[in-house]
């Protein structure tokens, strides 16, 4: 897996980032919070999962991935995302100064808190963010039981 390939390099993105951060703090008023956010050394893709009562909503950051190269599967309580992120190609006449973005294939399975009805899932991919809404499986939804008196 090429993800994380540059993680250990002393001339890699972290050293570079450190230099830039220093520069940033030298030249600007220090912000309250500046967070470096990279794909390198991180689980890719990052996923947020929300419980909306009758349905689950999943958000997933997939910058630079073509819709055609993205596969989404839902079965039971598992959502699987497969795809490939293209590399910035650098030929012999070019030089790479900074490389912080990861690239390569990914295949991630996310376990959901409950079983879902994958057939009714809706997925939208906008500006590199995938949003999936999927209803919970009828089996896991609470059923009201009529209480009878004798």
């Amino acid at each position: 897996m090429p993800f994380g390939r540059f993680f250990d390099s002393p001339r890699g993105p972290f050293a570079q980032l450190q230099r830039e951060m220093n520069q940033l703090f030298d030249t600007l008023v220090a912000p309250r919070l500046a967070v470096a956010r990279g794909l390198v050394g991180r689980t890719f893709p990052p996923v947020n999962v929300y419980d909306d009562g009758a349905a689950l909503t999943l958000e997933c950051e997939l910058p630079g991935i073509d819709q055609e190269n993205l596969e989404l599967y839902i079965a039971g309580d598992t959502m699987t995302l497969k795809g490939e992120r293209p590399e910035v190609r650098c030929d012999e006449n070019a030089r790479m100064h900074i490389r912080e973005r990861g690239y390569g294939t990914f295949n991630r399975a996310i376990t959901l808190p409950v079983d879902v009805d994958g057939d009714k899932a809706e997925a939208r991919f906008v500006n590199g963010v995938l949003r999936v809404t999927v209803p919970k499986s009828p089996q896991v939804m609470p059923k009201q039981v009529k209480v009878k008196t004798e």
């Binding site: 993105p13 980032l17 830039e20 951060m21 600007l28 008023v29 912000p31 309250r32 919070l33 500046a34 967070v35 470096a36 956010r37 990279g38 794909l39 390198v40 910035v88 650098c90 006449n93 070019a94 030089r95 790479m96 100064h97 900074i98 490389r99 912080e100 973005r101």
Partner: peptide, 17 residues
Amino acid sequence: AVPEEYFLPPVDVMETA
């Protein structure tokens, strides 16, 4: 305006002729 809180986006920088 510089935002109070922000994320530093990861970048690739390539130089060609």
